[in-house]
């Protein structure tokens, strides 16, 4: 049996009016970076809350590192960063962190030592200023995010779950977050994050699961997902002045399914059964100079579009998952 950090089997959860998650099964390999992708209201947060035992599923089982997740102390191995972030406003930073660590079973003395290391690492404690003594509401938004992130990792969890971690981050902090995720993986930890930003997922994830409207659309290793989607996409650049000469070819529905104008090149999705070599021949025959003709693996973004549909994405772009 493969080694899974999380093994979800046939889990369902319904509320009075709607089904949040329907018969969901997914496996997260230990030591991987796993992306949970889907538009708004797809059931990502519900799934995460069920893993954390915040919500009890109606049906199915969830295992953490081979044990039922209801086992006492099982969720202590998880570090969780919720999408909606917040801390006790009137509490001192050190005390908040110590409280969060102790809730996960870290002894007070050990927690104190780790807090010092983390505060220094995130520049919350410098020779000039020790923010650890300040109250949460005296901190800037960015600093509060750092404190929350420290709180997630303070008990050295084997599994880190981040719900929409990139939302609201500036480029510098987003980069720092990516570095941290890669470092966690290097230390053998498992990282799951939910997102609707496909670029992040494609760059970072070993494996993904796409869910929409409570159903799993597809899952697997990113390389497998892309390979199975096939190379139906062509990047074509004929230079600006010759664009008009190939317009007729692009309009041929027997050959071209869909065209996405990327300004410097066309991203062409071939029609079903069409041969890319035929497209190349037709363009060559027009006499237009071919600067680029590349058979591309589809991006996760395109796979997502294809599987979920454009409406789902627009909703997903608007915010919460």
């Amino acid at each position: 049996m493969p080694d899974y950090a999380i093994d979800i089997r046939n889990v369902g959860k319904r509320y009075a009016a709607h089904v949040a998650v329907r018969d969901l099964s997914l496996q997260v390999p230990r030591g991987s970076v796993y992306g949970l992708l889907g538009p708004n209201g797809a059931g990502k947060t519900t799934t995460i809350r069920m893993i954390l035992n915040i919500i009890v599923p109606d049906t199915g089982t969830i295992s953490l590192f081979g044990q039922p997740h209801l086992t006492s102390g099982a969720t202590d191995r998880i570090g969780y960063l919720p999408e909606e972030r917040g801390l006790y406003k009137k509490m001192q930073v050190r005390r908040v962190l110590r409280f969060l660590a102790e809730l996960k079973g870290v002894p007070g003395k050990v927690a104190e030592q780790r807090i010092e290391e983390w505060l220094e690492r995130f520049q919350l404690k410098t020779p000039e200023k020790d923010w650890g003594l300040a109250k949460i509401d005296e901190l800037s938004r960015g600093m509060q995010q750092k404190v929350q992130f420290i709180g997630t990792l303070l008990h050295d969890p084997d599994l880190v779950i981040l719900d929409e971690p990139f939302s609201g981050l500036d480029p510098i902090n987003a980069q720092a977050l990516k570095d941290t995720i890669v470092e966690l993986k290097a230390r053998g930890k498992t990282v799951i994050f939910s997102t609707h930003l496909m670029d992040n997922a494609e760059r970072l994830c070993d494996a993904v699961c796409i869910i929409a409207h409570g159903d799993k659309v597809l899952d697997g290793m990113v390389s497998d997902v892309k390979a199975s989607a096939g190379t139906r996409t062509v990047a074509l650049d004929v230079g600006g002045e010759h664009r008009a000469s190939i317009a007729a070819i692009l309009a041929d529905r027997a050959l071209v399914g869909r065209v996405d104008d990327q300004n410097r090149f066309y991203e062409i999705e071939l029609a079903a059964g069409a041969d890319p070599q035929q497209l190349l021949r037709r363009v060559y025959e027009t006499g237009a100079p071919i600067h680029r003709f590349e058979l591309m693996q589809p991006s996760l973004h395109q796979i997502f579009l294809e599987k979920v549909g454009a409406t789902g994405v627009e909703e997903g772009m608007s915010g919460q998952g």
């Binding site: 954390l52 035992n53 915040i54 969720t75 202590d76 998880i78 969780y80 919720p82 909606e84 972030r85 917040g86 801390l87 006790y88 406003k89 969060l100 809730l103 996960k104 929350q148 709180g151």
Partner: peptide, 17 residues
């Protein structure tokens, strides 16, 4: 109400019932 509105509750209940 503070735990709920500041959303601390979500972090806390992921560690404790």
């Amino acid at each position: 109400m503070e735990e709920k509105t500041t959303r601390v509750a979500e972090v806390v209940v992921s560690s404790v019932s």
